[in-house]
Amino acid sequence: MPTPLTHEALRGAPKVLLHDHLDGGLRPQTVIELADACGHQGLPTTDPVALGNWFRDNANSGSLVRYLEGFAHTCGVMQDEEALVRVASEAVQDLAADGVVYAEIRYAPELFTERGLSLEQAVEAVQEGFRQGREASGGKIRVGTLLCAMRQNDGWQRIADLVVRYRDAGVVGFDIAGPEAGFPPSRELSAFEYLRRENAHFTIHAAEAAGAESAWEAVQLAGAERLGHGVRLAEDIKGDEVGRLAAYVRDRRIALEMCPTSNVQTGAVASLAEHPIKRMHELGFRVTVNTDNRLMSDVTLTGEFATVVEQFGFGADDLRKFTVNAAKAAFLPHEERRALIRDVIEPGYAAL
């Protein structure tokens, strides 16, 4: 008899996470302690349970302004090397405890330079934290780093340079984050051209706050290998008729980094029941399931798997497919992706 897909059973399944923001995944207690250490003012409470609830309530408020208030606090306490090492280490340990075997964690280095850190110091501190977290987890998890440029700011090339400079130290790719509407990838196409010349990987947040046209720019102008969220690509699907852009994304096996809970909270979809993940999975898109911001959304990857199982009736074979999709889309060398699927994912789901 198959094992019931309980939360505990799902926790034990090997998982691959492609879309997780470092500054959106702190432990509430860590925010409190770092705020005290650095003199950060304005936390709504110093009770860890209440603070976690505050972040969650902001995310569920339906107000982008309130949602972003949370990042003012997390980024506010991540302004020195010691804090970055701690946050990065704890993120890896938390993901490993959740059954994640490979994760790509992203952040914007420029957000951590308000008190004098250089971009390089920020990157090196985070990489050291990831190393410590993996060691503390017994090597059960591997982590790759994605460096984000902020779409509304100039200087994407600086971050692209860092991706190339630190790729032998664990940085596996590039992204642009921040306000999607009004700041398209075409704003600094030269950064993507540079990355392609240097054989570097990149994903792009697209078709979340803006429509399917955002995915078109990301794919056709910038050459994105994956789409961060990509949920509004469903606007190019009418019933069983898949439009030309959506068909191109599907045919090229461009992965969609979907984050179901976050997609509802940010208004990318009206409700979980209306999320296109099941339909796009059935139509053959390379769908993956992700967390986005674990603190803000009060989620884990196990919890997101449980959510889509309950909402859409997915079974173990569907979850295995999502995980294999993520492994195939990971910014890892081909042989390492194959080994991850063959030696870790397939045996884990056979047991599930």
Rank of each mutant, 00 (worst) to 15 (best):
T3E: 15
T3C: 12
T6M: 06
T6D: 08
E8D: 11
A13P: 06
V16G: 06
H19L: 09
L22R: 03
D23G: 04
Q29N: 01
T30L: 01
E33N: 11
L34H: 00
L34M: 10
A37S: 14
C38I: 10
P48M: 12
P48L: 08
W54I: 06
F55P: 02
R56P: 03
D57N: 08
N58V: 02
E69S: 14
E69A: 08
A72Q: 15
H73G: 03
V77W: 11
Q79M: 10
Q79K: 10
E82S: 14
V85G: 00
V92M: 04
Q93M: 02
A97C: 12
D98T: 07
G99Y: 04
V100P: 02
Y102R: 07
E104T: 11
R106H: 07
A108L: 08
Q121W: 04
A122S: 15
A125L: 08
A125C: 02
Q127M: 06
G129M: 04
Q132A: 06
R134Y: 05
A136E: 11
R142L: 02
G144P: 02
A149S: 13
M150W: 04
Q152P: 04
N153A: 12
N153M: 13
D154P: 12
V163P: 04
V164T: 12
R167E: 01
A169F: 14
F174R: 11
F174N: 11
A177D: 14
G178N: 01
G182V: 14
P184M: 08
P184V: 10
P185E: 10
P185S: 07
R187V: 05
R187L: 06
E188C: 12
L189T: 05
L189P: 10
R197E: 15
E198V: 12
E198A: 14
E198S: 12
H201E: 15
I204D: 10
H205V: 02
E208L: 03
E213F: 06
E213M: 11
A215I: 00
A218I: 09
V219R: 00
Q220I: 09
Q220Y: 13
A222M: 13
R226E: 05
R226L: 03
L227F: 01
G228R: 06
G228V: 07
G230T: 04
V231H: 07
R232I: 04
I237D: 01
I237K: 00
I237P: 00
G239Y: 13
A246W: 03
A247K: 11
Y248S: 13
V249H: 06
R253Y: 07
A255T: 01
A255C: 01
E257G: 12
C259L: 02
T261E: 01
S262T: 03
Q265F: 06
S271T: 09
A273I: 05
A273M: 03
F285H: 08
R286G: 02
T288G: 09
V299Y: 00
G303H: 12
E310H: 13
G313I: 05
G315D: 10
D318C: 10
D318E: 14
K321A: 15
V324H: 14
N325R: 02
A326H: 08
A327F: 13
K328G: 08
R337D: 11
R338Q: 15
R338W: 08
R342Y: 07
D343P: 13
D343S: 14
V344C: 09
V344E: 11
G348I: 14
Y349L: 14
